[in-house]
Computed example of a mutant assay.
Amino acid sequence: MSDRQVIQDEYFTVLVDERRGLVRTIRSEKPFDSLEELDDVFERLGRALDELGRSRYGLLADLRAGPGRNDPPWEAALERLRPLWVDGFQKVGVLVRSTAGQMQIQRHARHDGVPRMISKDEDELLKYLTQDGQATCRPP
């Protein structure tokens, strides 16, 4: 396997595939205990991604194991913190496990203004991220 592990904690694993120019962030199933913990984890994640040099890579965000949550305080915090995760990459692909997850990420994409492909098909995302092409979910 050509992936190099950059970080691993209770919430995220970050792998880099230099050959394909790809960063993979894998969300664990562990829920965040508080909004403060969410802030801390996203700040660490953002610093690690910054150190890699985001503009050199595509990002595959694997959210399949992550617990779903959409209460208003949580949504507001994620709206503020998502740029620490997804901004600055050449392309962004989001791997989800369900149609509901796909719809939630599409809503985030429209709000964030960061084009991304959202799919339940990992091969489709890998093809998009490693070849020339346009995201199929672009904000209006």
Rank of each mutant, 00 (worst) to 15 (best):
Gln5His: 07
Gln5Met: 13
Val6Ala: 02
Ile7Lys: 05
Asp9Ser: 11
Tyr11Ala: 07
Phe12Gln: 02
Phe12Cys: 08
Val14Pro: 02
Leu15Val: 11
Val16Arg: 09
Asp17Phe: 11
Asp17Cys: 14
Glu18Trp: 14
Arg19Asn: 02
Arg20Leu: 15
Arg20Gly: 00
Gly21Phe: 11
Gly21Cys: 08
Leu22Trp: 00
Thr25Arg: 02
Arg27Gln: 06
Glu29Asp: 10
Glu29Asn: 10
Asp33Cys: 09
Asp33Val: 14
Ser34Thr: 05
Leu38Glu: 01
Leu38Phe: 14
Asp39Phe: 03
Asp39Trp: 05
Asp39Gln: 10
Val41His: 03
Val41Lys: 12
Glu43Arg: 10
Leu45Arg: 03
Leu49Arg: 01
Asp50Met: 15
Leu52Met: 07
Gly53Leu: 15
Ser55Glu: 10
Ser55Asp: 07
Tyr57Asp: 01
Tyr57His: 00
Gly58Gln: 01
Gly58Ala: 04
Leu59Asn: 03
Leu59Gly: 03
Leu59Ile: 12
Leu60Met: 10
Leu60Asp: 02
Leu60Thr: 06
Ala61His: 09
Leu63Val: 12
Leu63Phe: 11
Ala65Met: 15
Ala65Lys: 15
Pro67Gln: 07
Pro67Trp: 02
Pro67Phe: 04
Gly68Thr: 15
Asp71Ala: 14
Asp71Leu: 12
Pro72Ser: 13
Glu75Ala: 14
Glu75Thr: 00
Ala77Leu: 10
Ala77Asn: 09
Glu79Lys: 15
Leu81Ser: 03
Arg82Ile: 12
Pro83Asp: 09
Pro83Met: 08
Leu84Arg: 10
Leu84Gly: 09
Trp85Glu: 01
Val86Asp: 05
Gly88Ala: 09
Phe89Gly: 02
Lys91Phe: 04
Val92Gln: 03
Gly93Phe: 08
Gly93Arg: 04
Val94His: 00
Leu95Thr: 08
Ser98Arg: 06
Thr99Met: 08
Thr99His: 08
Gly101Ser: 07
Gln102Cys: 12
Arg107Cys: 12
Arg110Phe: 12
Asp112Asn: 11
Gly113Met: 10
Gly113Gln: 09
Pro115Gly: 09
Pro115Ala: 00
Arg116Gln: 10
Met117Val: 14
Met117Trp: 13
Met117Ala: 12
Ile118Trp: 05
Ile118Gln: 01
Ser119Asn: 06
Ser119Gly: 12
Lys120Tyr: 06
Lys120Asp: 00
Asp121Glu: 11
Glu122Asn: 08
Glu122Pro: 00
Asp123Phe: 10
Glu124Met: 15
Leu125Thr: 03
Leu126Thr: 05
Leu126Cys: 01
Lys127Arg: 13
Tyr128Gly: 04
Tyr128Glu: 05
Leu129Asn: 00
Thr130Pro: 04
Gln131Trp: 14
Asp132Cys: 01
Asp132Gln: 09
Gly133Glu: 05
Gly133Val: 02
Cys137Trp: 13
Cys137Val: 15
Pro140His: 04
